[in-house]
Amino acid sequence: MTWFYLSIAIISEVIATSALKMSDSFTRLWPSLVTVLGYGVAFYFLAVSMRTLPIGIIYAVWSGTGIVLIGIVGWLYLGQKLDLPAMLGMGLIIAGVMVINLFSHTVSH
């Protein structure tokens, strides 16, 4: 269940960050509410995940996956461009998260 909780935290953080962009510096009510609620959910499930997994592993997976997902959301829905160095960097982040999950002995599956 820990990985499921961490997935909820990541998805909530991506939704909150996307809404933060749309909140126009908290001047629009509904995106602002989604931002606050999304970050609340994200941090709750991040904390729940910390009951089982080491904080360094959780944070690496949470932030790395979040970076890549936000990049994709920005590209698909917000009209932001991803150049080759950005895509290569995101590919390296994905590789790093995979190495942690597949080969680290500190991760209990």
Rank of each mutant, 00 (worst) to 15 (best):
M1D: 03
M1N: 04
W3A: 11
W3M: 09
L6S: 09
S7V: 07
S7Y: 02
S7D: 03
I8N: 11
A9L: 07
E13I: 07
E13W: 02
I15Y: 04
I15T: 06
A16S: 10
T17S: 13
S18T: 13
A19D: 05
L20Q: 06
L20M: 14
L20V: 04
S23E: 08
S23C: 09
S23R: 15
D24Y: 14
D24M: 10
S25E: 13
S25K: 15
S25V: 10
F26V: 15
T27G: 14
T27C: 11
R28C: 08
L29F: 13
W30K: 15
P31Q: 13
P31W: 14
S32V: 13
L33H: 13
L33D: 14
V34F: 11
V34R: 10
V36K: 06
V36G: 15
G38D: 02
Y39I: 06
Y39K: 10
Y39F: 13
G40Q: 06
V41L: 05
V41P: 03
A42C: 08
A42L: 02
F43A: 09
Y44T: 02
Y44E: 05
Y44W: 13
F45I: 05
F45D: 03
L46P: 11
A47P: 05
A47Q: 07
A47V: 12
V48F: 02
V48E: 02
S49G: 04
M50W: 09
R51M: 01
T52Q: 03
T52P: 00
L53K: 01
P54D: 09
I55H: 04
I57E: 11
I57K: 04
V61H: 07
V61I: 15
W62H: 10
W62G: 07
S63C: 11
S63W: 06
T65V: 10
G66V: 09
V68G: 04
L69K: 06
L69Y: 01
L69W: 03
I70H: 00
G71S: 04
I72M: 10
I72D: 02
I72E: 08
I72C: 00
I72A: 11
V73M: 09
V73D: 01
G74R: 06
W75K: 12
W75R: 12
W75T: 08
Y77I: 10
L78F: 13
L78Y: 12
G79H: 06
G79T: 07
K81C: 01
L82T: 06
L82D: 09
D83A: 06
D83K: 07
L84R: 13
A86K: 09
M87A: 08
M87I: 15
M87V: 14
L88R: 01
L88Y: 02
L88V: 15
L88A: 13
L88C: 07
G89K: 01
G91R: 04
G91I: 10
G91T: 11
G91C: 09
G91E: 08
I93F: 02
I93Y: 08
I94A: 14
A95P: 06
A95I: 08
G96L: 04
M98K: 12
V99W: 08
N101S: 11
N101A: 14
N101P: 11
L102R: 14
L102P: 05
F103Q: 02
S104V: 06
S104G: 03
S104A: 13
H105I: 00
H105D: 09
H105T: 08
T106P: 00
V107G: 01
H109G: 13
